[in-house]
């Protein structure tokens, strides 16, 4: 019995020493708590936070400021909250929206429902908008993100914010993390590429497109590949006569893959 007790005491002492050393012999570092998932944030988000998210999307992922800026490629949105109410009554309006909020949402995913005069695609007599559907393609906003942008637009134009934060959490995939971690697949068709990067918003090809940048219909006849490459990667290096500086985004080179750039150059150089 004595032996038995000694063994028990010895065992307890040993375990006690190990536990004591782990508790007091080494520093206790509190590991970071599990990161909160983005989707959970939406549920507890305040309206201010939601509007801020919209602003981030408007300036970032949405690429809206590419055209909606002081240079006048697209209508200014500073007063869109007030203007929108009038649009609904405009006889040219073809959409189905009944409220300002619905109108703004519609204008993001179906831009051609109402085209402000002077901002339509060339040759469509302002019936078709050069703006892409933000929920699809390269931008790919989720329903919740579109709602956030609408909330931001209402807020920034001084209108009453009527948007409600979507509580259906599943609708929001994430806030853009996925785009970067999972690169899109390379595109082989130059026309699709032009559509993805919305080149036709500014450039005209075959009579379709904007007039902000030079007409590309026969660009291959007057410019070689090297010039075109420079024009895409560093747009302000040479400015064609009659056009302004700083109109074309400078990050085209980063946005497209090298292979895509070559495909695009082949295509453009072949336009004679």
């Amino acid at each position: 019995m004595r032996q038995f007790l000694t063994v028990v005491v010895f065992t307890l002492l040993t375990i006690g020493f190990f536990a004591g050393y782990s508790n007091f012999g080494i520093p206790q570092i509190e590991p970071a708590p599990p990161p909160k998932e983005e989707k959970l944030d939406l549920g507890s988000m305040t309206m201010d936070g939601f509007i801020a998210l919209g602003e981030r999307l408007f300036n970032g992922k949405g690429t809206c400021t590419l055209c909606h800026n002081a240079l006048g490629r697209a209508p200014e949105l500073a007063t869109v909250g007030e203007v929108a109410a009038g649009r609904l009554k405009d006889p040219r309006y073809e959409g189905e929206a009944g409220t300002v909020e619905e109108y703004l949402t519609e204008s993001l995913i179906d831009p051609s429902a109402f085209v402000v005069i002077g901002f339509g695609k060339k040759g469509t007599n302002d019936t078709e908008s050069p703006m892409p559907n933000v929920a699809s393609g390269g931008i790919g906003m989720s329903v919740a993100e579109v709602a956030a942008v609408v909330a931001y637009l209402q807020d920034s134009s001084g209108a009453e914010v009527t948007v409600e934060i979507p509580q259906d959490i599943g609708a929001q995939e994430d806030d853009g993390e996925e785009d970067e971690s999972e690169p899109r697949e390379a595109i082989g068709d130059p026309k699709e590429l032009m559509a993805l990067f919305t080149c036709d918003a500014c450039h005209m090809i075959g009579g379709e497109g904007g007039e902000v940048g030079p007409d590309l219909t026969q660009i291959g006849a007057s410019r070689d590949r090297d010039y075109l490459r420079r024009a895409i990667l560093d747009p302000n290096a040479d400015i064609a006569e009659g056009f302004e500086e700083d109109m074309m985004p400078e990050d085209m080179g980063e946005a497209m893959y090298v292979a895509e750039l070559e495909i695009l150059l082949d295509y453009l150089a072949g336009l004679k």
Partner: peptide
């Protein structure tokens, strides 16, 4: 598959050592 339980946190070493010690005593 994410652990969403309230216990999803990583415990400190002291906490873990205590659990291991209790388990070791039961085992012994």
């Amino acid at each position: 598959m994410r652990d969403a339980s309230p216990d999803a946190f990583t415990p400190t070493l002291g906490y873990a050592a205590n659990v291991v010690s209790v388990a070791a005593i039961i085992f012994m």
